Amino acid sequence: MTNEHQRLVSVESQSEYNLTSGKSETRIFVKMYVDAVKKGLIADIGADRWQTLCVLSSFMNEKGECYPTQDQIAKALNVRREAANKRIKALCDYRWQGRPLVVKQKTRDPKTQRWENTRYTIMPISQLAIFDGDTEELPEPRDE
């Protein structure tokens, strides 16, 4: 990630080593920057979609890909599975400055044609990245 632009949100990892037990622990954090508010992302996305985006980001890899189950998402949001599905749909339908923050792709098993898994990709426009993943610069908000 370049530091040429201001980030709105980031995901970082922190490793700790316990001298007493000899064990290492890695923690992952989602950070929101004040510019996410100043540039209008938080106001525009709304509470439910923001919460859902934060939950999805907790599952992502360095490419922004996430493979949580519907049950995992529902449990993390503390809602029923049906409500979680509605939130995921709303988030995937949402556009920030005309572009999706999350893209959903379902894959089928080629032999059985049953749904295999769902991949959610958190796009760089979302300002969420992990392990040196990319984000992109956002333009200044438009006065309407």
Rank of each mutant, 00 (worst) to 15 (best):
S57N: 09
E65G: 07
L8S: 02
D132H: 14
R95L: 15
I125P: 05
K63G: 04
I42E: 02
N3D: 13
L77Q: 03
P100E: 07
I88S: 09
Q14P: 01
Q113E: 14
S13V: 06
S10T: 09
A74H: 00
V37A: 07
Q127D: 09
E136T: 02
T20L: 13
S21D: 08
W96R: 06
I88L: 15
D93H: 02
L56A: 11
W96N: 01
V34N: 04
C54F: 01
S57R: 00
S57E: 02
K106N: 09
T52M: 06
T112F: 06
V102I: 08
S57Y: 07
N78A: 15
E12R: 08
L56C: 07
L53D: 00
G40P: 08
Y33I: 06
Y17L: 05
L19A: 11
N78L: 09
S24A: 13
T118G: 02
D143P: 02
L41A: 00
V55F: 04
L56G: 05
A84M: 05
E137H: 06
D93W: 05
M1E: 08
T26I: 11
K75I: 00
K63R: 14
L19P: 01
L91K: 00
T20C: 03
E62V: 07
D134Q: 11
K23V: 13
W96T: 01
R80S: 15
K86W: 03
L41T: 00
S126L: 10
D143G: 01
R99Q: 15
D35F: 01
T107W: 09
E25D: 12
N3H: 08
P68L: 00
K23M: 13
G64T: 03
I42G: 02
L41N: 07
N78Y: 09
K106F: 08
R114S: 12
K23H: 10
T107G: 05
T26E: 12
D109S: 05
S13A: 10
K31H: 13
T52W: 00
A43Q: 10
A47M: 14
L56P: 00
G133R: 05
D134L: 14
R7M: 14
K38A: 15
